[in-house]
């Protein structure tokens, strides 16, 4: 019994040593930028496709106004795709408004409408008292570019312009804060 126990202990120690070697071998360079090898695509881990859309007042807004692909001066961006006829979108809109106030000047929240006129977008913004930018995408070109086929869809983009999460469905303020805190903590 003692010999068997000794052999088992040796085996366990050997397995532990092998495991540690494998963990050391698998270690990654933390500072590496995964986006370097990736192309533009609305997919997690890729560079978010750039776009330029106008607010109902005609002011043009681009993704690259906020993110900085080559430097560290960018800020995380949240793209929230919505439409005025979409019930779940209306439910989550106040959560986005509260979050935008809480993270003002640290995170950009952009509400991208799907296929509606500037007037509809304006009416929606006024009815909910929204202060974050609502963008008009009347021909849904940017919606298509991002492959949005279900509303609401929310896309989290880090300060380097890399897509970090694509979320289909309703979000609440707590989840938004959770994701944004993580993006901000990454520095």
């Amino acid at each position: 019994m003692t010999r068997l126990r000794f052999e088992r202990m040796i085996l366990l120690a050997a397995l532990t040593a092998l495991g540690i070697v494998w963990i050391l071998f698998s270690r990654e360079e933390v500072s590496r930028s995964r986006a370097v090898v990736l192309t533009e695509a609305p997919i997690v881990g890729h560079l978010a496709p750039d776009f330029t859309l106008a607010t109902p007042l005609g002011e043009e807004v681009s993704l690259t106004d906020f993110v900085d692909r080559d430097g560290d001066s960018g800020q995380p961006v949240v793209l929230n795709y919505w439409a005025s006829w979409c019930g779940p979108c209306r439910m989550e809109t106040p959560e986005f408004q509260n979050t935008s106030l809480k993270f003002k000047n640290r995170v950009a929240i952009l509400g991208i409408n799907q296929g509606e006129s500037a007037q509809k977008v304006t009416e929606f913004g006024i009815s909910y008292g929204l202060t974050y930018p609502l963008l008009v995408d009347e021909d849904s070109a940017v919606n298509q570019k991002y492959g949005v086929n279900s509303l609401p869809t929310t896309i989290f983009i880090d300060r380097k312009g890399v897509v970090r999460e694509v979320f289909v469905g309703i979000l609440n303020q707590a989840v938004l804060e959770d994701r944004l805190n993580r993006l901000l903590e990454e520095g």
């Binding site: 495991g19 963990i23 270690r27």
Partner: peptide, 16 residues
Amino acid sequence: GGGYHILQIISLAVMI
């Protein structure tokens, strides 16, 4: 923080 896979460390501990 050091670039180690946390899941691997947990897996090794659970296995042993």
